[in-house]
Write a protein that binds this DNA or RNA. Structure first.
Length: 205
DNA sequence: GCGACAG
DNA sequence: ATCTTGTCGC
C-alpha cells in the first residue's frame, strides 16, 4: 500500500501563505489511542483551536509501519478541527522512510494538504551532525538520494529530523519548522498537541 | 547470523 | 510510545 501511494506524493510548494499550522500527536491508554490536534497561528504566535479524539487500535508499533497504528486516531482528531489549515506538522518521518512514505506523506496524501515530517529520531539514511548553532542543517542521504535534513532548532541541543510530507519542498519544510520552534526543540504545533494528549490521558486514567 | 529500528 | 528514579542546568 505504501509503495502504491508513494507515487501520489508531490514535493513542490503549493501553499501561498503559511499562517495556520496544525500539529498532531497521540498517546495510548491500553488499546485506546488518544489523539490531539492543535492549530497554531504563526502570526499571533498562539494556539487558535484544539481537538482530541479516541479510537481503539489493534495494529502494533512496527518500524516503517507507524501509519497503520496512528493514522486512524490522528485523522479523527484532525477532522474535528473547524479552522482551515495551511500546513500540517507530523511527529514522525515523511519521505525519510524505507519506502519513502512515512506518516507525514500518508496524512498528506489522504488529507490533500501540505505536510511536513518532524521526527525526534532518524529511521533511515545517514547524516553528519549539524553545526551546534540553532538553524544549522545537515542533509540526510541514502546513497545518492536526498531524504531530508537534520536541523538544529536549539543551539547545543540534539537536532530534529525533517523530511517532506506532501506539497512542500525540503527547504520550505525546514524553514517552517524553524519558524515554529523559536524556543523549544520540538515545534510548537506538535509540542502543544503532545501536551494536550498528555493532559487528556491523565484526566481519564 | 547480527545490528538497527519514527512512535 | 509507556514506566520509573535520580541528576544536571538555567
Amino acid at each position: 500500500m505504501q509503495q502504491r501511494l508513494a507515487g501520489l506524493v508531490r514535493q513542490e510548494d503549493v501553499g501561498q501563505t503559511v499562517r495556520r499550522i496544525a500539529g498532531l500527536d497521540c498517546g495510548y491508554r491500553g488499546n485506546t489511542c488518544v489523539a490531539g490536534a492543535v492549530v497554531w497561528d504563526i502570526e499571533l504566535e498562539r494556539s487558535v483551536e484544539e481537538a482530541t479524539a479516541e479510537v481503539e487500535v489493534d495494529f502494533p508499533y512496527v518500524p516503517g509501519l507507524l501509519s497503520f497504528r496512528e493514522l486512524p486516531g490522528l485523522m479523527a482528531a484532525y477532522n474535528k478541527l473547524q479552522t482551515p489549515v495551511d500546513l500540517l506538522i507530523c511527529d514522525g518521518q515523511g519521505y525519510a522512510h524505507p519506502r519513502r512514505f512515512g506518516l507525514a506523506c500518508h496524512l498528506g496524501v489522504l488529507l490533500g494538504i501540505p505536510t511536513v515530517g518532524c521526527a525526534k529520531r532518524a529511521l533511515v539514511g545517514r547524516y553528519e551532525p549539524p553545526g551546534a548553532k540553532r538553524g544549522v542543517r545537515s542533509l540526510i542521504r541514502d546513497g545518492s538520494e536526498l531524504l531530508g535534513a537534520a536541523v538544529r532548532t536549539r543551539t547545543g541541543v540534539r537536532p530534529v529530523f525533517i523530511s517532506v510530507g506532501h506539497l512542500v519542498t525540503l527547504d520550505t519544510a525546514c524553514t517552517v519548522v524553524l519558524r515554529c520552534a523559536p524556543r523549544y526543540r520540538v515545534p510548537e504545533p506538535t509540542r502543544r498537541a503532545d501536551r494536550l494528549v498528555s493532559r487528556v490521558r491523565q484526566a481519564s486514567t
